[in-house]
């Protein structure tokens, strides 16, 4: 099929450059990929399991937990009809993505949940999933404000994914009083 050709030498730049071309990024990547998947401390609901097409169960849990911290919305405090499953929406969104992006997301989640990475940067040998909510928030804050570019980049990618999946769902709009295209008269 057209599009399979080789491209001129010197024109290829992998999208993982931010990971591979920084010392700590490369180290973290190497170590994190050698580790077995961490113990899963929560279970993916049965009705969700069959629906996942992109995330592994562990990845689903990581994104769910990160999303709860990032958007500050948890399922327990929201009525079921208003609950937005950000991780499931992200799974559907990413399943149509290009392979290069998909590979990046898998890598990011592996590194993000890695106990080695957490130990290296936060002196806590714990996966993200194993942390309590307070520690998870602190961990995310560390990624957001890090001096290392690859961590800030990873944070932004995770934040944008979760925020976009949450706030493109119209069930999130009542809380922020967004009513679509037109400003309501009462707001005027």
């Amino acid at each position: 099929m057209i599009g399979e050709e080789q491209f001129p030498p010197g024109t290829e730049i992998g999208r993982r450059r931010f990971l591979k071309q920084t010392l700590f990024g490369a180290a973290a990547l190497s170590i994190a990929r050698l580790l077995p998947e961490g113990y899963v401390y929560a279970e993916v609901p049965k009705d969700i399991r069959g629906q996942l097409t992109f995330f592994s169960e562990q990845e689903y849990l990581i994104v769910s937990a990160a999303s709860a911290c990032l958007t500050s919305h948890t399922a327990s405090e929201t009525p079921p009809e208003k609950t937005i499953d950000v991780a499931l929406r992200a799974d559907r969104f990413l399943s149509d993505e290009q392979p290069e992006i998909q590979e990046q997301v898998h890598l990011l989640l592996t590194i993000f949940n890695s106990a080695i990475v957490a130990f290296f940067f936060h002196f806590k040998f714990s996966t993200f999933l194993k942390m309590d909510v307070e520690a998870q928030n602190s961990y995310l804050d560390g990624w957001m404000t890090s001096w290392f570019n690859f961590r800030r980049t990873g944070f932004q990618a995770l934040k944008r994914l979760c925020m976009s999946m949450h706030y493109t769902d119209s069930r999130s709009w009542d809380e922020i009083r967004y009513h679509g295209m037109f400003m309501l008269e009462e707001q005027q």
Binding site: C69, L70, T71, S72, N137, L140, M144, K159, R160, M163, S164, H166, Y167, T168, S172, W173, I176, Y178
Partner: peptide, 14 residues
Amino acid sequence: YPALAAMAMPGFGA
């Protein structure tokens, strides 16, 4: 728009 605002707005959480 909501998603654009949420992605651009600094910080996270509460």
